[in-house]
Design a protein around this nucleic acid. Structure first.
Length: 230
DNA sequence: GCGACAG
DNA sequence: ATCTTGTCGC
């Protein structure tokens, strides 16, 4: 399908220009409860091979977590990895992959930060604002902020604090494992975001959407038959 | 100036 | 992220 972004902008920017754009787009992030009628969710992740970025979108049913379909897109790495500017390196490939889907999922679960970001616009928020769809950030470690010790059981949480502000939640997605960092991407609130992430967990540290997207993005030969699709 | 720093 | 074997722990 052809995407119809609510906002369009160049991706080949200089770091300082990218930062200014983030400040502007962050003003468009909307906080609201997540819809109660979610039936599909898309996991987003990007892997690298030989100087190329491969974005993968895993489309699953919610809350069953059944893999329906997936799409991948490879693009040369143009922008370097700079903490705080990840979206300028990965988002272009993600958007191209999303275009290959027949329809957009009800919500996107992105491997990376939402508003738990220096300018409150991590890749999850960036994608959400551009497409104007609900998105949630679920990173494997924080970019900014800290959290106090939390319970060791799956489901335990601790707020991610940055200058007396709650930017996200450290969530124990699996007993005994390092917590994941959940934050608002766009059109959702922290409570519903955390709840949805936990509902997507199936015995692994990463929730199914992101876990499968990662497997697909880093597979040497992404073949649908290998994932029971097609 | 020094340390931290999503993927 | 990626390069990589064995190994510790639940």
């Amino acid at each position: 399908m052809s995407l119809t972004p609510k906002f369009l902008h160049d991706w080949s920017l200089l770091p300082d220009e990218a930062i200014r754009l983030q400040v502007e787009l962050s003003k468009k992030v909307v906080t609201m409860p997540l819809s109660e009628t979610i039936s599909t969710i898309g996991g987003v992740d990007v892997g690298y091979q030989e100087g190329k970025a491969r974005a993968a979108i895993a489309l699953l049913t919610y809350p069953a977590m059944y893999l329906i379909n997936y799409a991948v897109s490879e693009t040369p790495c143009s922008f370097p990895y700079i903490p705080g500017l990840l979206s300028f390196r990965e988002a272009p490939a993600v958007l191209t992959a999303l275009e290959k889907l027949t329809e957009l999922p009800d919500v996107l679960l992105v491997d990376g930060q939402g508003i738990a970001h220096p300018r409150r616009l991590g890749i999850a928020s960036h994608l959400g604002v551009l497409l104007d769809i609900p998105t949630i950030g679920c990173a494997k470690s924080p970019l900014i902020g800290h959290y106090e010790a939390l319970g060791n059981n799956a489901g335990d949480t601790a707020p991610l604090i940055y200058n007396d502000e709650i930017l996200g939640m450290a969530v124990r997605s699996k007993t005994g494992c390092k917590p994941v960092i959940v934050s608002i991407g766009h059109r959702c609130d922290l409570t519903s975001a955390v709840q949805l992430v936990l509902n997507c967990c199936r015995g692994y540290r990463l929730p199914e959407p992101t876990r499968l997207a990662h497997t697909i993005a880093s597979a040497k030969f992404p073949k649908k038959s290998l994932f029971g699709i097609g």
